[in-house]
């Protein structure tokens, strides 16, 4: 009803010019493709270069199978153990107040700031032949370093923060109100935990489990130091990958690598799904992660 002509639309004050945007997007995409996607792609092209048959055969090699079994064993021990720790730590930290909390949290974060090699080193210093318990262990014929127990210990060290770090901010954010309500209704502590707390944290817990497992199966540096590299006995998948690669057996090396890479992709995929569907259930986590 007005005679005024339609208005020429202005440049949006909230974003850059289209050309700038395009340029930035290109830079970002190219950078990511070169530095992140290419290495991922190489894993699969390298292992399939002699065809799928060669890839499958490599996975059926005895040493490969031992490596897979050992990796699964280590993860099967480390992850549940760390799960219990994660639940206990986050329960005590998030639902109660006591002095020294930030110190405790810093301690839990410790493995993230320590080089994997150093993580392995400290266990050698404790359990190695010249370590603190070296003589005692030797006398009782117990092998930790250069044997499976050492690998398990080192893996536990490196992966224990994951679950706790996911759960602590999440549970802190959720507070204690629901648990207190359950208690007033007569529920026991354990029942409260199972019926009230767990469902609230289930997605964060799942996420932490995924990360913990991925790291447990993929850990290299720490395990390499404590392992002894004995084929068929003390080699996890990453260690076996190293041996095969150094022998120029790239198909086999990348075959095992492809297994781990697929695990990584599954982890990433599930993580994305979780964040997408249940992003709000994961907040409190902030996106600070190491």
């Amino acid at each position: 009803m007005s005679d005024a002509a339609p208005v020429r639309s202005h440049i949006n004050v909230r974003t850059e010019a289209p050309a700038t945007r395009l340029a930035l997007i290109l830079v970002a995409v190219v950078f990511l493709a070169l530095f992140l996607l290419a290495p991922l792609g190489v894993v699969f092209t390298q292992t399939l270069q002699k065809g799928f048959g060669a890839f499958a055969k490599a996975l059926q090699d005895d040493d490969a199978i031992s490596a897979i079994e050992l990796t699964l064993l280590v993860a099967a021990i480390a992850v549940p153990v760390n799960l219990v720790f994660g639940l206990a730590a986050s329960w005590s930290i998030a639902k109660f107040s006591f002095p020294g909390k930030s110190l405790l949290i810093t301690l839990i974060d410790l493995p993230f700031s320590v080089s994997p090699v150093v993580s392995g080193l400290v266990y050698v210093l404790v359990f190695g032949a010249q370590g603190v318990f070296g003589d005692w262990l030797g006398a009782h014929d117990i092998e930790i370093i250069f044997a499976v127990p050492g690998i398990v210990l080192a893996t536990i060290f490196v992966t224990f923060p994951f679950i706790a770090r996911e759960l602590i901010p999440l549970m802190q954010e959720q507070g204690t109100v629901e648990e207190e309500a359950a208690l007033t209704l007569g529920a026991s502590g354990f029942h409260t935990f199972v019926a009230v707390t767990l469902p609230n944290i289930k997605w964060g817990l799942l996420y932490g489990l995924l990360l913990c497992n991925a790291r447990a199966m993929g850990e290299f540096g720490a395990v390499s130091v404590v392992s002894g590299h004995i084929r068929g006995l003390t080699n996890t998948i990453p260690l076996q990958v190293e041996i095969l690669y150094n022998e120029y057996n790239s198909v086999a090396a990348f075959a095992l690598a492809a297994l781990l890479a697929s695990l990584a992709l599954v982890t990433l995929g599930l993580k994305t799904l979780l964040e997408w569907r249940h992003g709000d259930a994961l907040t409190g986590r902030a996106r600070r992660r190491q």
Partner: peptide, 17 residues
């Protein structure tokens, strides 16, 4: 979408912020 804005006598409609 339609219309005009004037500051004094100046038509500001097509001016940027």
């Amino acid at each position: 979408d339609r219309g005009a804005v004037y500051f004094g006598e100046d038509n500001a409609t097509n001016l940027s912020v």
